[in-house]
Write a protein that binds this DNA or RNA. Structure first.
Ligand SMILES: [Mn+2]
Ligand SMILES: [Mn+2]
Ligand SMILES: [Mn+2]
Ligand SMILES: [Mn+2]
Lengths: 220, 220
DNA sequence: ATATATTTTTAGGGTTATCTAAATATTAAT
DNA sequence: ATTAATATTTAGATAACCCTAAAAATATAT
C-alpha cells in the first residue's frame, strides 16, 4: 500500500505515542506530537481507519492494525538508517540529523533501503542509541537504565538518549558526553536528584535530574 | 524561497525544455514532459508567475526568471549528485537511479548537499555523463559529438548518453557499452545510418542510427 | 483570406490536508 | 448527581494540485 507523507507521519506518531504510553493514542496527543489541530487529527483518523490501518472508534483513541504497525516500523527503520548515514558517512553531528531524516524517511524504494543498510554495515542502533528495526520489523532489545535510577558507585556505558532535541544534544556535546562514554556515579543528591559522575574515568561533572532522566545506561 | 515538489518539478521541466529547444517552453511541451494535462500546466504557470519565478504571458509560452533558473539549476545539481551517490556508493546500475533521484532531489538542506558533494569528491558529471552544476549553478562544458555524426576511422570515448530511459540503458549494458568505452568507427551505412564500431579495440558490433544518435563521444 | 487544425485557456469539479469556531461527548470535581 | 472542565468531533472554509469538457486564441493549409 502506497501512503502519503502525511499518512506515514500520523502512523509513526501513533506508534510512538502508544509505545511510550503503552496504551491507545488520544487525538490530542497525536495533535500535540504533530503540531497540528485536533480537528485535523480526527479528519485523518477517519481516513486511516477507512484504509484499515488503524482501529478507531469515536472518542476512544486509536491503535494501529497489523498493516499500520508494519508501515510505522518501516518508516522508523528508514529514519534511523538515514540518521546513521548522515552521521557516519557525511559526518554530521548527532544533533543535526533528525530534521533531514524526517524528510529522507519518506523516500520510497525497497532496493534503496536494502543497499543503504548494507552500505552502513547493517547497523543495529542509530546515532541516538535507538534500535533500528530489521527488514522484518524486529527491534533489537537492550537492557538499559536511566542514569537517574542508578546508585552511588554504579557504573555503565551511555547507550542512548531519551530526549532528541538539538538543544539537549548540544548541551551533551558541551559536557563531552557521547554514546559510549563510561559513566560512574560518585554520589546522588536525594534533595534534587542531581548527581556527580565521572566520565571515562577522567573528569568529574555534575548532572541535574532532568538530564540524568534522559541518559540511558547499560550497566556493568 | 521555499518551493513545493510540484513547483520545483515544473521549473525543472521548463528549464530542460527551453534548454533543448533554445526558446520559450510551450504549455503542451510542459504537459507532455510532466505527463499531466495542459489545463493543469496553465494553472501552475499562473502561480509560478505570481511568485516571480517565470515570465508568462497568455498564449506566449514561458521562460524562467533569474530566481527560477537558480532553483531549477540547484534541483538538477541535487538530482545528479544523488545519482552519483546511488551508483558510486550504493552500487546501483545507471539504469536504476533516475526514479530514486527524482525523489531525493526534493530533500531540502543546503548543508546536506554540501556534504554529499564532498563525500563524493566533487564529481563534475553524473552516471549518464551529464554535467553537475556547481554550488553557483555553473555547468562544466565539454566538447562532445553524437556518434551518428562521426565518420569512418574516427575514434573517441563515450562520455554521455542523450536518452536516459531504462530500456535504452539496459540495451547498452547488453552491448557492453558504458561511459568510458573507446569507440572506433569502422564504417557507416548511408542508407539507414547504421554503423559498425569497435569497442575498446576489441569487439566489433553494429549499432543502429537510433542508438548512435544517443551516444555522445569526446573525439580523439 | 477563409476554413481547419492545433494549442491554450477557462469553467466547473474532485481530493488531500489543513484551519477556526461551534457543538457534543467524556471525565473530573464538587 | 449535577456542574464544570477537558477532549473530541462536526461544520464550514481554504489552498494546492490535479482532472475533463468547452471556449477562445493562434497557427496552418488551401
Ligand atoms: Mn530522529
Ligand atoms: Mn535517532
Ligand atoms: Mn536522472
Ligand atoms: Mn543523470
Amino acid at each position: 500500500m502506497k501512503l502519503s507523507t502525511a499518512e506515514e507521519n500520523y502512523l509513526k506518531a501513533i506508534f510512538k505515542i502508544s509505545e511510550k504510553a503503552k496504551k491507545s493514542a488520544s487525538t490530542n496527543a497525536i495533535a500535540k506530537h504533530l503540531s497540528t489541530s485536533a480537528a485535523s487529527v480526527t479528519d485523518m483518523l477517519k481516513r486511516l481507519a477507512e484504509k484499515e490501518l488503524i482501529n478507531y472508534e469515536k472518542y476512544k483513541g486509536v491503535t494501529l492494525k497489523t498493516e499500520g504497525i508494519k508501515q510505522a516500523t518501516q518508516l522508523i527503520r528508514k529514519h534511523r538508517l538515514w540518521e546513521v548515514f548522515l552521521v557516519k558517512k557525511l559526518r554530521f553531528s548527532w544533533d543535526q540529523v533528525h530534521e533531514i531524516a524526517e524528510q529522507l524517511e519518506h523516500i520510497e524504494s525497497k532496493e534503496l533501503i536494502m543497499r543503504l543498510d548494507a552500505f552502513l554495515d547493517y547497523p543495529k542502533f542509530d546515532p541516538h542509541g535507538d534500535p533500528i528495526p530489521n527488514a522484518d520489523g524486529k527491534f533489537t532489545i537492550r537492557s538499559q537504565t536511566p542514569l537517574s535510577d542508578m546508585h552511588k558507585g554504579q557504573e555503565g556505558k551511555l547507550v542512548g538518549v531519551k530526549d532528541h532535541q538539538t538543544e539537549f544534544l548540544k548541551y551533551l556535546n558541551s559536557l563531552n558526553v557521547k554514546l559510549g562514554t563510561i559513566i560512574t556515579v560518585i554520589d546522588s543528591v536525594p534533595y534534587d536528584g542531581s548527581m556527580n559522575v565521572i566520565l571515562d574515568g577522567k573528569n568529574e561533572i555534575m548532572i541535574t535530574a532532568a538530564v540524568a532522566q534522559n541518559l540511558l545506561i547499560r550497566k556493568g
